[in-house]
Design a protein around this nucleic acid. Structure first.
Length: 676
RNA sequence: GGCGGGGUAGCUCAGAUGGUUAGAGCGUUGGAUUCAUAACCCAAAGGUCGGCAGUUCGAUUCUGCUCCCCGCUACCA
C-alpha cells in the first residue's frame, strides 16, 4: 500500500431500474465507504467514484411498460438512488451516470481507439429483426411460447415460468415485444473483442495477485479454464452510447463495455487530473463489487484496458458474496428486500444502526444472512449497551461532578498504564484489518475502545473516589473523555453520523487517524455538550413489525403465484385430434447419467417398449415409477437429449407448489389404450 | 452432470504454510456492582472443526472418496 501515491476506489455502478436495498449496501457500497473514510483519515490521496448504469435492455423494457421514455426512467431512479446513498453517508466524491454526455464521449473515444488499432473482430450474425418497428430485437424483446413448458410469454433469453434458459431462435411463435409482429432473421454486423487473444495476459495478471480473495480468483479461474471466447462489444439497440462509426445507426456499445468506462468518465467530471488516477503507475485502483460482477471487472474490463493500453489494472477487487434476508435470497421481483428508502421512514436517524448491523455480518467470505432479530441484538447489545452506554457514562459523570467541564489530568496509576497499553495495540491492528478488507474484524477492533472504556470505569470507580479525592476522579474522567474522542475517530468509517455527533459534543475541530492512542486530544477545561443518548433500544414490537411486513409480502407473492394459469386460446377439434395420447406402463426407469433433471423411462405402449426421457428426476425416484401406468403423448416427434432419443412425452399435472403428479387412469387399462 | 464457493460452539462468523488447552461477538448460567439506556464488569459452561479412508510421529488444517447447502452451466419435448 505504501508503494502507491493515490488510490482510486470504485463501487459497482448500480443499474438504474429500481430502488436500492440492504443487499446493495452490504455488497459493495458500505465496505467501499468504510475503506475510503479510513484512507481519508490517514490523509491519503483517494477518490471514491460510483454512479448509475443507465443503459441496456431492461431499462427500455421498463420504460415501455410504464409508458415513459428510458431517460425518464433513469432520471427518476438516479435521483432516488443518489438520495438513498447520501442519506446513508456513502461518501462518494462523485456519483455520476452513464447517460451523461461526458461519459458518451469518453467511451466513444475508448471504442474508437480500439477500432482504429484493429483490436476488434467484425462479425456478421443473424439476429431477429422487427420489420414494422424497423429495428433489431434484443433477446428480451422477443416473446413467444416456451419450447419447454409450452406456456406463452417466455422471453428470448429465458422463460420465467419454468426457468429455462433460451436463445431467441428456440421460441415457438416468436413475436416482437415492440410491434407484436413476427420477427425475421436478418444479418447484422457487430464488433467483438477477442478475449481469447488476451487470455495469456489475463492469466498472468490474475496469477500476479495471489492475495485476492478465493471467491474472486475461483470464479475467474473457472472462466479461464473453460477458455475465453470473443465477446460482442456492440448491440443492436437504440438506447445506449452510439457507436462512433459511420453507418451504424441503431447500434450502441454493449453495456458492459461502457459501464466500467463509466468509472473513468465520472472521474473526468470530478477532477482535471482524472488521467493520473487511472493511468499513473503509482495509482492504485480498487474495485468494490458484488460477486455477480467478478467476471466483468477481473477479465473483460482488464482485457479492454490491455487492448487500449495506458490504463492501470485494478490492484484489488474485493468482491463480496450476497446478503440474504431472513434465510431467503433477496429478490426485487418478489419484493423480498429491505428497501433503503423505506428503512429511512421506519427508522429515522438510525442509518448508523443499519450500517453497523450490515458491517458486522458482512458477506465477506460467504453468503450472509440479515435478520431483524440480529439487527435488534446488534443495536441493543452492542451499540446501546457497549458504545452508547460508555459514552453516556462518561458524559453524565462529568456533567454531574464537574459541571460539564473536562477536569484536568493528574498522576495516573497502574490502571491508566494498563489502559494506555491496551489501547495502543488497537490502531495498528485496525489498520491491518482495514487494509486487508476485513471490515467485520475491523469493526470489532474499533468497538474494543468502548469495551476498554467500560472496563476502565468499572475498575477505576470514579463515582466512589469522587467523595474522598475529586482530583483523582477527575483524572479518571479525563482519561474516559480521551477514550471517547478516540472512539469517534476509530468508528468514523463505520458509523460516521454517530462519530460526528461525538466530535461536536467534544468540540473536536479536526480529527485524523494518527490521533488514535493519543490521550491529550481533549484539553482540560473544554466544555462538553452532552449529546444525549447516542443510540436507543429497539423494542420487540418494532422489529416484529418489520418481520410481519416481510411475511405479508411473502404470502402475497405466494398467493399471486398460486393463481391458476390463464386459459390458452381455443383450438379446433382437428388440432386436438392430431394428438395421440395413450396409456402405457413404465417397465423400467433410471436416472440419466450426467443429468440433474432427466429420467430415462422404458414405457410399454402395447406394441413395444419405447424410451421416453422426462425431466422429472427432482420429483420422482426411478424405482417408485416402475410398474406405474402413465398417460403419454405417443406421436410427438422424437427428440434427442443428451445423446439419447426420446420417443414421446409423459403427461404431468403440476400442483400450486410446483410439485408434479402422474396422470393415471382410475382403473387398470390395457397398455396402448387411447385417451380421447 | 461440469465448474466455483461453503459446511467450525445455541446463533452469526473468524482461524490454522499440520503440532502443546480451536477463537470472537451475541445468547445461556453463576457472581460482583449501581456512575450508566435493567445497561456495565468478572467468571463459567458449551465444539469427536459435515462423514469415511489415506499420507504423517501427529490432521480439524494436506490428499482421495462421500453427503449436504449456495451460485454459474448443460439437460426438463
Amino acid at each position: 500500500m505504501s508503494d502507491f501515491s493515490r488510490t482510486t476506489v470504485t463501487a459497482a455502478l448500480i443499474y438504474a431500474n429500481g430502488p436500492i436495498h440492504i443487499g446493495h449496501l452490504a455488497g459493495c457500497y458500505l465496505p467501499a465507504d468504510i475503506y475510503v473514510r479510513y484512507l481519508r483519515l490517514q490523509k491519503k490521496d483517494v477518490i471514491f467514484v460510483s454512479g448509475t448504469d443507465e443503459h441496456g435492455v431492461p431499462i427500455t423494457i421498463k420504460a415501455a411498460k410504464e409508458g415513459k421514455t428510458p431517460q425518464q426512467v433513469v432520471d427518476y431512479y438516479y435521483k432516488e438512488i443518489k438520495d438513498s446513498f447520501e442519506k446513508f453517508g456513502i461518501s462518494f466524491d462523485i456519483y455520476g451516470r452513464t447517460s451523461d454526455p461526458v461519459h458518451h464521449q469518453v467511451s466513444q473515444e475508448f471504442f474508437l481507439k480500439l477500432y482504429n488499432e484493429g483490436k476488434f473482430i467484425e462479425e456478421v450474425t443473424e439476429q431477429f429483426y422487427d420489420e414494422e418497428a424497423k429495428q433489431f430485437l434484443a433477446d428480451r424483446y422477443i416473446t413467444g411460447d416456451c419450447p419447454s413448458c409450452k406456456q406463452p410469454g417466455a422471453y428470448g433469453d429465458q422463460c420465467e415460468k419454468c426457468g429455462t434458459t433460451l436463445s431467441p431462435t428456440e421460441l415457438l411463435n416468436p413475436k416482437s415485444a415492440l410491434s407484436g409482429s413476427k420477427p425475421v432473421l436478418k444479418p447484422t454486423k457487430n464488433w467483438f473483442l477477442p478475449l481469447d487473444q488476451w487470455q495469456p495476459e489475463l492469466e498472468k495478471y490474475i496469477n500476479s495477485h495471489p492475495e485476492w480473495k478465493s471467491n474472486v480468483t475461483g470464479q475467474v479461474k473457472s472462466w479461464l479454464q473453460e477458455g475465453l471466447k470473443p465477446r460482442a462489444m456492440t448491440r443492436d439497440l437504440n438506447w445506449g452510447v452510439p457507436i462512433p462509426l459511420p453507418d451504424t445507426e441503431g447500434k450502441v456499445l454493449y453495456v458492459w463495455f461502457d459501464a466500467p468506462i463509466g468509472y473513468v468518465s465520472m472521474t473526468k467530471q470530478l477532477t482535471p487530473e482524472w488521467e493520473t488516477y487511472w493511468k499513473a503507475k503509482d495509482s492504485r485502483i480498487v474495485h468494490f463489487i458484488g460477486k455477480d460482477n467478478i467476471v466483468f471487472h477481473c477479465l473483460i474490463f482488464p482485457a479492454m484496458c490491455m487492448a487500449h493500453g495506458g490504463y492501470q489494472l485494478a490492484d484489488q477487487v474485493p468482491a463480496n458474496e450476497f446478503m440474504n434476508l431472513e434465510g431467503d435470497k433477496i429478490s426485487t421481483s418478489r419484493n423480498w428486500a429491505v428497501w433503503l428508502h423505506e428503512y429511512l421512514v421506519d427508522f429515522p436517524g438510525k442509518q448508523d444502526v443499519l450500517r453497523y448491523a450490515l458491517t458486522a455480518s458482512s458477506p465477506e467470505t460467504k453468503d450472509a444472512d440479515f435478520t431483524w432479530a440480529d439487527f435488534q441484538t446488534k443495536n441493543n447489545s452492542e451499540l446501546v449497551a457497549i458504545l452508547g452506554n460508555f459514552v453516556n457514562r462518561a458524559f453524565v459523570l462529568i456533567d454531574k461532578n464537574f459541571g460539564s467541564v473536562v477536569p484536568p489530568k493528574g498522576e495516573g496509576t497502574g490502571l491508566e498504564v494498563d489502559l494506555m497499553a491496551a489501547v495502543s495495540d488497537i490502531p495498528a491492528k485496525l489498520a491491518v484489518a482495514l487494509e486487508n478488507y476485513k471490515f467485520r474484524d475491523a469493526l470489532v477492533l474499533a468497538m474494543e475502545i468502548a469495551r476498554l472504556g467500560n472496563k476502565y470505569l468499572a475498575e477505576a470507580e470514579p463515582w466512589k473516589i469522587m467523595k474522598e479525592d475529586s482530583a483523582k476522579a477527575g483524572t479518571v474522567l479525563n482519561y474516559a473523555v480521551q477514550l471517547v474522542a478516540q472512539a469517534s475517530i476509530a468508528l468514523e468509517p463505520f458509523i460516521p453520523f454517530s462519530a460526528q455527533k461525538l466530535r461536536s459534543a467534544l468540540g473536536m475541530a479536526s480529527f485524523e487517524w494518527s490521533s488514535l492512542g493519543d490521550f491529550e486530544l481533549i484539553s482540560a477545561g473544554t466544555v462538553l455538550q452532552n449529546p444525549g443518548l447516542l443510540f436507543e433500544k429497539i423494542e420487540d414490537e418494532e422489529v416484529q413489525k418489520q418481520v410481519d411486513k416481510l411475511t405479508q409480502t411473502k404470502t402475497q407473492m405466494e398467493l399471486a403465484t398460486k393463481a391458476v394459469p390463464a386459459l390458452k386460446e381455443t383450438i379446433a377439434f382437428d388440432d386436438f385430434a392430431k394428438m395421440d395420447i395413450r396409456i402405457g406402463e413404465i417397465v423400467a426407469a433410471e436416472k440419466m447419467e450426467k443429468s440433474k433433471k432427466l429420467l430415462k423411462l422404458q414405457v410399454n405402449d402395447g406394441f413395444v417398449t419405447r424410451t421416453i426421457l422426462s425431466g422429472i428426476a427432482e420429483h420422482f425416484a426411478p424405482e417408485d415409477l416402475v410398474g406405474k401406468q402413465v398417460t403419454f403423448l405417443a406421436n410427438l416427434a422424437p427428440r434427442k437429449m443428451m445423446g439419447i432419443e426420446s420417443e414421446g412425452m409423459i403427461l404431468m399435472a403440476e400442483d400450486s407448489d410446483g410439485s408434479l403428479a402422474l396422470v393415471q387412469p382410475n382403473k387398470q387399462i390395457w397398455n396402448g389404450g387411447t385417451v380421447n
